[in-house]
């Protein structure tokens, strides 16, 4: 090869590498926009709110005096609502996803259902709130309760769970199914012994993404009648006089973190803004804790999968 050609070649390679490098920088910049937005919000909340966070803040009920006000009823409400949401959305969503992937015949009806499930994920949350107001609050008579709120948010995240379940199931190699069927397994056996266990890390990720969205939702929760001032907790099973039933807490009135924050930001006294920042900080920590739990569970579950 001539020296000249070699140099031309090197120039081309260098130019391409430059492009590579430039795209890398662009990617990092794009990433920074997302990260810095979150970081600046988080730091701002921390600066304004950290001074307010102590044990009293977590164990006090709301109050008209900013210094005495706490988020006890709000965080307990959020945790309980999330519990109901998970209990309702996970079985329903996983079952629907498994059906669509493993059982459903491939025809136009299934296609229509698939498209609709994906579209449901984009429906504004207030619509779910209105649906729940008519269905759960009035038709089923659940009232303005933790159960209603949990089921509403479950409906909201159901599409996310279904889609995540299907994605997770699709990533399982076809060989596994074929092997199992070849040994004479029924569809149910394939699903319960192989498909669901192997796809559970992926499903879990989807569930957590859904839950993280649900915990910050305000509009549908306000529509179904979450309260602003509530200075008592839902009844503990068997506690109190007369003793509360195991499921009485489901029908208790409640509030959640975002509503508490919203109320505080609209107060005239500036001190309440610090409370709102502190509550926001805790809410972010709750979301991070949920994500952390999911990562840990996913790690544990993945370790058990060997194929």
């Amino acid at each position: 090869m001539k020296e000249q050609d070699l140099q031309a070649l090197r120039a081309i390679i260098a130019a391409h590498k430059r492009w590579d490098w430039m795209f890398g920088v662009l990617g990092i910049l794009a990433l920074m926009v997302a990260l810095m937005t979150f970081a600046s919000l988080f730091i701002d909340m921390a600066i304004n709110g950290l001074g307010r966070i102590d044990i009293d803040f977590l164990t006090s009920f709301p109050s008209r005096r900013a210094a005495n006000a706490g988020i006890l009823s709000a965080w307990v409400g959020s945790v309980l609502v999330m519990l109901v949401t998970a209990c309702a959305a996970v079985p329903l969503g996983v079952a629907a996803g498994v059906y669509l992937e493993e059982y459903a015949p491939k025809n136009w009806l299934t296609d229509v259902i698939e498209i609709n499930v994906t579209n449901l994920a984009g429906v504004p949350s207030i619509i779910y709130g209105l649906l729940a107001l008519g269905l759960f609050v009035y038709t089923f008579g659940f009232g303005q309760s933790i159960l209603t709120a949990g089921l509403t948010l479950a409906l909201l995240i159901l599409p996310v769970v279904i889609v995540a379940t299907r994605e997770a199931i699709r990533s399982i190699p076809q060989i596994i199914r074929e092997g199992a069927y070849a040994c004479g397994a029924t569809t149910w056996q394939v699903v319960s012994d192989h498909i669901v266990p192997y796809s559970s890390p992926g499903i879990l990720t989807g569930v957590i993404i859904g839950m993280a969205r649900a915990i910050g939702e305000t509009a549908p929760i306000i529509t179904v009648g979450a309260l602003t001032f509530i200075a008592f907790l839902p009844p503990m099973p068997f506690a109190g006089d007369p003793p509360a039933g195991v499921f009485d807490w489901l029908f208790a009135p409640f509030t959640v973190m975002p509503i508490q924050m919203f109320n505080w930001t609209s107060r005239p006294e500036a001190a309440f803004l610090n409370n709102a920042a502190a509550a926001g900080f805790i809410l972010v920590l709750m979301t991070l804790a949920m994500n952390g739990l999911a990562i840990w569970l996913r790690y544990r579950l993945r370790k058990n999968i060997k194929w």
Binding site: A226, L227, F229, A231, F232
Partner: peptide, 10 residues
């Protein structure tokens, strides 16, 4: 002494 519960909504 919390014998009566009051809820206030907006």
């Amino acid at each position: 002494k919390n014998a009566v519960r009051v809820t206030v909504g907006i």
